[in-house]
Design a protein around this nucleic acid. Structure first.
Lengths: 337, 337
DNA sequence: TTGAAAGCGCTAACAG
DNA sequence: CTGTTAGCGCTTTCAA
C-alpha cells in the first residue's frame, strides 16, 4: 500500500470516546450512553461528559458505529443519468425525506455503460441501510444478484420489491384529448431504449387512451433518452404522424432542435408532447407541452416508504402521486379540424 | 431504538470471513490475505479460500474494513445545487476520476439553506477520505470548523487549501472583444449572490478586460443564480446597458425569458452572454453565447489532485484548464457600429 | 447510576 | 508461508 494519508504534518488521530472518558474520569461506556441516550446517566455526569466531548471537538466515527450496530444511517439513491434535469428532482426528494430522520444520502449515477450495474449495486448497497432506485438500469436481473438490502423502486415494477409509480393515466388521457381535439389523428410515439420498462409503461398507457379515441398511434422510433436521441428520431417521423409524444423531455428537445434545423415548423407542421416537465420545457421555443411525472414527489415517497420499513415511520407512506399535463405552445392544430 | 431492519423473514446475517475460514479450514487472517493480497498465500489455499468465499456469496463489510484501516475508499463531492445542470458535469468528472482508482463518490447538495453548511460538512467528512467542493457555500469560515479531512476546492481560493480554478481570462477577453467589436460600449454584469467568491472573481476578470477596451462595465444587479434570479434582474437593466453578461447560464435564461415577456428583443435590443455553457444554452432562442467554465474537467482535476494526496497518483495533477467562448445568437450589433 | 467486558467484521503485526 | 493475537472505535448486555 502506498504512503498513508497522514504523511505530512497532519496530527490526524481523532478524539475518541476513550479520550473523553479519560479526561472526564468515567468509562467509555458512560460516554457512549451520554452521547446517545440522553437522560440515561445522572444529569451531572451527562453534562460533564458532553462538555468534555465538545471541548475536545469530538466527532463520532460513523464506521465504528456501523460495525457495532449494523446500521449506517445512510441510504442510497440510484439515478439513471444525472445530466437529465429530471433527476435533480429525485435527489431533492430523497434528500429531503432522508434528512427528516437524520439519514444521509449517497447518490450513484448508473449512466456509465462501461460499469455493469451489478458492480454499482455491489459497491453502493453494502454501504447503506436501504436504497431508492430511479434508474432504468436497475433491472430485475440486476436486483436478483444483490443481497438483502431493501430497495424501493421508482417507475419500475419488480416482483417482490416495493415500488412507486406516479399515476400519469389521467394526464396521458388529457394529452390525447388535447391532440385529438386539436385535429390530430395520426400520433407517433418516440420510445426510449427498447429495454426500458418505463418507456413500455408509458406506451401502454398511451395505447390504451388512444384506443378509446378517434386517433391512431404508432411507435415511430426507439432512441436513447437524450437530446441527440431526439434529433435522430425526427428523421423517422416524416409523413407518419402530425403529432408526436416522446418518452421524455430530452427527446422532445432534440426533436424541436432538429425540426428547426430541417425547416420543419413546430407546432404548425408537427406537434410535440414530452414527459417529465423539466425546467427547460419553458426554455425552448415553442415552449414544450409536457406531462409532469413528479419524480421529486415520487422519490420522496419512495424514501418515506423505505425508511418506514427501516423503522422510521414518517409522513404518509400511502400517498398517491399523479402526473399533470401542462399545455404550452408545442401543440397546434392538426389536419382534421 | 425501533424495530430492527430484519424483523420479517429476513435471514439477514451476512457471511463473514469467519464463516469462510471455518468452512475452508483456515484462519480468518488467511481469508483476509487471500482476499486482499493475491499471491500472499500458497496458490492452493488461495484458490480454495476464494472458491468458498464465492460459494458463500461473501461481500466484504466496508465498515469493518474502514474501522480497521482508517480509510474508506469514499470521496465526497459537494455541489451547490444539483438543479443547476452545470453540476451534473461535476458529478461526472469526480465520479470518473474516482472510479479509476476504485473510489466511490458520495454527493451532497448544499442548496438547502435550512441546513447549515457546517452540518452538511460534519455529516459528510467523517464518511470520506477526502472531498471535492464545488459549492459556493463552502466558505473559509465553514472550512475552518472542519477537521483534517483533505478537501480540494473548485472555483474558490482559500488559504491553505488546494484549489482548481479554470482559467477563463482569455475567454472573458474574447467575450468583451466580441461585444465591443459589435458596437457595444455600455456593458452590464448581473452578479450572483453578494457573497459569492466566484461571482466576484468573474467580475474582477471582466473589469480588467473592460478597462483595456473602449467600453464601460457596471454591475446592474446581484441575484440568486437561478432562472428566477435572472428574471428579477432584467428590470434593473433598462437603459443602463446594451449588452449584459451574467454570472451563470441560469441567470441568462431568466433574462431571456423575462425579456421576451416584456417585449424586449434579444439580441436587437439587448445582447446577452452567460457563463457555464450548460446544455440548455442551445435550447433557448436565441441560442445563448456563453463562456464554458469546464466544471467537469475542473472537478476531474480536483479529484486527481485529491487522490494524489491520498496516495493514489493518477493522471497529471498539474493540467491547466481553460474556458472557451462559444458564440451563438444572443449577441447582436450595438449602437456604436 | 455506572463500569467491565464482550463483540461487530476486518486488518496487520508478529510469531511460528 | 501461515496462523495467532491484538486491536480499530463504538455499542450493549450484564453486574456491581
Amino acid at each position: 500500500m502506498p504512503r498513508t494519508p497522514n504523511d505530512a504534518a497532519t496530527p490526524r488521530r481523532r478524539t475518541t470516546i476513550y479520550d473523553i472518558a479519560r479526561t472526564a474520569g468515567v468509562s467509555a461506556a458512560a460516554v457512549s450512553l451520554a452521547l446517545n441516550q440522553p437522560g440515561r446517566l445522572s444529569a451531572d455526569s451527562e453534562r460533564r461528559i458532553l462538555a468534555v466531548a465538545d471541548e475536545l471537538g469530538y466527532r463520532a466515527n460513523p464506521f465504528a458505529r456501523a460495525v457495532a450496530t449494523g446500521t449506517t444511517q445512510l441510504i442510497g439513491l440510484l439515478v439513471h443519468d444525472s445530466a437529465n434535469p429530471v433527476f435533480a428532482g429525485a435527489v431533492r426528494g430523497v434528500t429531503d425525506a432522508a434528512a427528516k430522520v437524520g439519514y444521509t444520502v449517497v447518490v450513484s449515477d448508473t449512466h456509465d455503460l462501461a460499469t455493469p450495474v451489478t458492480t454499482i449495486l455491489e459497491r453502493l448497497l453494502p454501504l447503506v441501510d436501504g436504497a431508492v432506485s430511479c434508474s432504468a438500469r436497475v433491472t430485475p436481473e440486476a436486483l436478483a444478484t444483490v443481497g438483502g438490502t431493501p430497495i424501493v423502486l421508482v417507475n419500475r415494477e419488480v416482483a417482490g420489491r416495493d415500488s412507486v409509480i406516479p399515476d400519469v393515466r389521467a394526464a396521458t388521457r388529457a394529452a390525447i384529448e388535447l391532440l385529438v381535439g386539436r385535429g390530430h389523428r395520426d400520433l407517433g410515439f418516440i420510445a426510449g431504449p427498447q429495454d426500458s420498462w418505463l418507456s413500455g409503461y408509458r406506451l401502454a398507457l398511451l395505447e390504451r387512451e388512444v384506443a378509446a379515441s378517434a386517433a391512431r398511434l404508432q411507435v415511430v422510433a426507439s432512441v436513447e433518452p437524450t437530446i441527440d436521441g431526439g434529433r435522430e428520431a425526427l428523421a423517422q417521423l416524416e409523413g407518419r404522424c402530425t403529432a408526436v409524444l416522446t418518452f421524455n423531455d430530452l427527446i422532445a428537445f432534440g426533436v424541436l432542435l432538429e425540426a428547426r434545423d430541417r425547416g420543419l415548423r413546430v407546432p404548425e407542421d408537427l406537434s410535440v408532447v414530452g414527459f417529465d416537465d423539466t425546467f427547460a420545457a419553458v426554455l425552448v421555443t415553442p415552449a414544450l407541452t409536457t406531462i409532469s411525472t413528479e419524480l421529486e414527489q415520487a422519490s420522496r415517497l419512495a424514501t418515506v416508504r423505505l425508511l418506514a420499513g427501516l423503522g422510521h415511520p414518517n409522513s404518509d407512506p400511502d400517498a398517491r402521486i399523479e402526473g399533470r399535463l401542462t399545455v404550452r405552445d408545442s401543440v397546434g392544430a392538426g389536419p382534421h379540424r
